[in-house]
């Protein structure tokens, strides 16, 4: 591999890693604060992608579609939290796992009933539907650069909210000792509803922004779910900073692993996870 292609692969790894961070951030946020393992995470990613595809087709504008799809995703989170999760907090973790597993089946089937089984795509929206010439035969979509920018910006916003706002203090405190936070007069029930809705919206937003880069197909969230769990476990469950560096690490490992050691390509992320857990059993940043 010469230097130019090495540079392109670095870019590929970074871009994939940043997108992974965006997808995984909702998962780690919900787990960190609420202690809920949301197995339906991938299904919500898929719902985001389908929503934006459907709305783009109706409205003819990708950006408008995202603008409308985000509140829909927040509402979905709100409904799921208030109707189902709210009754299960006092019960064992297993009930929540069972519920979110059930949600995968329900959301996947709902997707099939509403949108059918065909494969769809969303065209790359203007003004980012151009490409840069990287080497003499390879181009790079400007939209990919845009997605990187969005992921970085969101990482910054999430970091700022958690580090420098009152809400962030409550969130951090809640992650350490929920009972104490409640004892201090914070309405944990409202906080949970908020966190879950934001988490779902973040995940669905990842699906929306990734839609022009991927294909919209049934079950598209199932494979991303496993990768997200690996990212979150490597970074330390519940840590946003961990999710960020975990995602970059997995992005790079997937990109370079697939080219340098193709025979291990499908295992490389699990090997890294095993290695991290051996040294730091709670993850890199927990």
């Amino acid at each position: 591999m010469d230097l130019a292609f090495f540079g392109v692969q670095l870019l590929n790894g970074l871009q994939y890693g940043l997108l992974l961070f965006l997808i995984a951030s909702g998962l780690t946020l919900i787990f960190g604060i609420m202690g809920i393992i949301n197995l339906a995470h991938g299904a919500m990613y898929m719902i985001g992608a389908y929503l934006v595809w459907d709305l783009t087709l109706r409205l003819g504008n990708f950006w408008l579609a995202i603008l409308i799809a985000i509140p829909v995703a927040v509402a979905l989170g709100l409904i799921i939290e208030r109707l189902f999760l709210d009754t299960l907090y006092k019960r064992d973790h297993l009930y929540q796992v069972l519920l979110t597993f059930g949600l995968i089946l329900v959301l996947n089937e709902a997707q099939r009933i509403i949108w059918g089984g065909d494969v769809h795509s969303v065209p790359v929206p203007a003004p980012f539907d151009a490409s840069l010439q990287l080497t003499d035969n390879l181009q790079y979509s400007v939209y990919r650069l845009f997605v990187m920018g969005v992921c970085l910006a969101l990482a910054g916003v999430i970091y700022w909210v958690i580090r420098h706002t009152r809400l962030g203090i409550i969130i951090r405190a809640g992650a350490v000792n929920r009972d104490m936070v409640e004892g201090l007069g914070i309405n944990v029930r409202t906080l949970f509803t908020l966190i879950f809705s934001v988490g779902v919206a973040l995940t669905a937003f990842a699906g929306m922004i990734a839609a022009p880069l991927t294909s919209i197909a049934p079950g598209m969230g199932d494979s991303i779910l496993i990768t997200c769990f690996v990212v979150v476990v490597i970074g330390g469950i519940g840590s946003i900073k961990g999710a960020f560096w975990g995602a970059i690490l997995i992005g790079m490992a997937t990109t370079f692993g697939s080219v340098l050691i193709p025979s291990l390509a499908s295992m490389v992320i699990y090997l890294i996870m095993a290695a991290v857990l051996l040294v730091k059993p709670r993850g890199l940043f927990a």
């Binding site: 292609f5 392109v8 692969q9 590929n12 080497t135 370079f256 697939s258 080219v259």
Partner: peptide, 8 residues
């Protein structure tokens, strides 16, 4: 992406 870079 990484495979396309490899192909190029």
């Amino acid at each position: 992406q990484s495979y396309l870079t490899q192909i190029a």
